[in-house]
């Protein structure tokens, strides 16, 4: 039997790699993939607690998180394509028209 801490540490590690990816990378697509990594780490925590507490609400919530992640990646990638069409780059340092 694997203790709950192992799963939670794995989840925490994946979340932190996602955070570091979002903070350090300049390529918008890799930033996006890091966000997916963070969503997956949260999902792992949900499933862990759901399984250990014997309650299926956590897994239902994971289902909704996956729905939102699919919607988010579809819209986000469309935004990236629109950005690339207008500015010919997806480097987030050069996309600063909203910066005052």
């Amino acid at each position: 039997m694997i203790p709950i801490e192992f799963y939670l540490v794995l989840s925490a590690f994946m979340f932190i790699t996602g955070v570091v990816g979002v903070l350090t990378r300049k390529n918008a697509i890799i930033v996006f993939m890091s966000i997916e990594l963070m969503l997956n780490a949260a999902n792992l925590s949900f499933v862990t607690f759901s399984s250990f507490l014997g309650n299926n609400i956590g897994q239902l919530f994971v289902f909704f998180v996956m729905t939102v992640a699919a919607a988010e990646s579809a819209v986000g990638l469309a935004i990236i394509i629109a950005l690339f069409r207008n500015k010919l780059t997806i480097n987030i340092d050069e996309i600063n028209v909203l910066k005052w």
Binding site: N27, I29, F32, M33, S73, A74, L77, I80, I81, F84, L88, T89, I90, N91
Partner: peptide
């Protein structure tokens, strides 16, 4: 979806 979008963009 990700792979399609990566292949649509010019590699930097």
């Amino acid at each position: 979806l990700f792979l399609f979008v990566i292949m649509l963009l010019r590699p930097e």
